[in-house]
Nucleic acid binder design. Structure first.
Lengths: 253, 253
DNA sequence: CGAAGTGTTGACTAAACTCAAGTACTGTGG
DNA sequence: CCACAGTACTTGAGTTTAGTCAACACTTCG
């Protein structure tokens, strides 16, 4: 407690414009148009601000939460990238999703009161924490917040179902095209280049997520490179022919 | 009570014990321990009863709702079986789930205000309809109801993620074993035999759901029949060696 | 620098798919 | 109640895609 007070004091000396990113308020956050704040208007936004903890950034490999942790909060990604995964019965890892700045994670824990997946930072990541009790209280108070939380969960369901379709019906090339286009879209939502970006995850993670081996992922990238669809430079990707990619996912098979 | 007599008249020669299922109240419903009513205690249960529409049963092949229908309500399955599916961009069907009596469908529609899947009766099915407005109102009034709806959605997420893992990591035999065990468990929850039951869906639907071709599904059933794991008689299944099945899904690979 | 991790490429293999043919149900109309 | 049509299911033979195993190259970082 003492410690927290001390931190808060030191925070007061910082000029407003230079405050460390993890101390910014929702009202000023660059991501507020795609994150939780879109559920609330200005005066009510303070209620949200008041309950959010802006913890110190996680380093690569550190966990936001782990499978079976008690479910106490949901989390908004402010910067960095997070992967969610679970361990199968026989101890293998299954990557269930990649999450980008502005996205909310942790909603999986509601039903069982504990998390059903682990969430790990793929690189340094700043995370906002919203205790679920508070989120529930805000939901009861502001219908738009209740609606938004329902909506987030339902979006997660839709996303999972899209992945199911991908895994169940599509070839390796189709799966990888779909992932690249998804990343491209999410970059666009954050006003970043939709055609040139760095993949935050390893080939192994991609393969794991898409139900493919590393070798297959690597081969598909090589093939895309060779036929001029992508420029691949390690994790740096440039989409050269986006229509080609779109054609592949729409499974012209 | 008067009403009941009247209903019985119209039901012709049915004895009292056979009242048409779709007129029962939640308080008397055989499924209330696994369905929405578990969220509420007796006096409050009336509020739920008051908003539920018990429509006339659907016949095989009729839809509860269709993809892109406006989202107006969620639905509880009282009897019969329902499959959920969506059409992929290129017009193929993707089965996303099978639903059993006592289960809730339609929550997928919340975020976009329209349904993301179609839901179709696999055989005659009685469905309870709860307008979502009313469900939301009940949720604001009864925290346990809000919690239960959150919980249902989060369960759906977890289920989808399990399916993702299945599709991404497991062989044909593992997938089919998992489906059979899931059906067995859900039968047990409804106090039906966990080892002997009729599959409500076709081989084609199973294959579609599990990302396999009909032929592969058929071959796996034959193999299980041959090696004494199952007795398969068309859609009638008897589990002869449940530990064998469990062993297969726990992927001793 | 060197070790460990990460990614690429090749040769071979296996699981599931496709195509094809045939059998068994199911439901409808005579 | 049977005959028939149409669908659903099964089985076999051959093919294909992605997986496995193995060797090697490139990063990254202590």
């Amino acid at each position: 407690m003492q410690q927290i007070m001390a931190e808060n004091l030191s925070e007061k000396n910082n000029p407003v414009s230079c405050r460390s990113a993890f101390q910014t308020k929702c009202g000023n956050c660059r991501l507020n148009s795609i994150c939780l704040p879109i559920a609330l208007q200005e005066p009510d936004l303070d209620s949200l601000d008041r309950v959010i903890h802006r913890n110190k950034p996680l380093r690569k490999g550190e966990h936001v939460f782990r499978e079976n942790d008690n479910f106490t909060a949901i989390y908004a990604i402010r910067s960095g990238f997070v992967k969610a995964y679970r361990l199968t019965d026989d101890g293998k890892e299954q990557v269930t999703g990649f999450y980008f700045p502005g996205e909310i994670i942790g909603l999986d824990g509601i039903s069982q009161n504990k998390h059903s997946v682990s969430a790990k930072a793929l690189e340094t990541a700043a995370i906002c924490e919203i205790p679920f009790e508070d989120a529930e209280a805000l939901s009861s108070r502001f219908p738009s917040m209740q609606r938004h939380l329902f909506s987030l969960m339902s979006q997660e369901i839709i996303q999972d179902q899209q992945l199911i379709t991908l895994l169940s019906k599509n070839t390796a090339e189709e799966r990888i095209s779909a992932l690249i286009l998804s990343i491209s879209d999410r970059n666009a939502a954050r006003k970043l280049s939709p055609t040139s970006f760095r993949l935050p995850m390893s080939r192994t993670d991609i393969g794991n997520y898409l139900g493919l081996t590393v070798e297959t992922v690597s081969r598909v990238f090589s093939r895309f490179q060779k036929n001029g669809t992508l420029e691949v430079n390690n994790k740096e990707i440039t989409i050269l022919d986006i229509d080609q990619l779109r054609g592949i996912v729409t499974s012209e098979a």
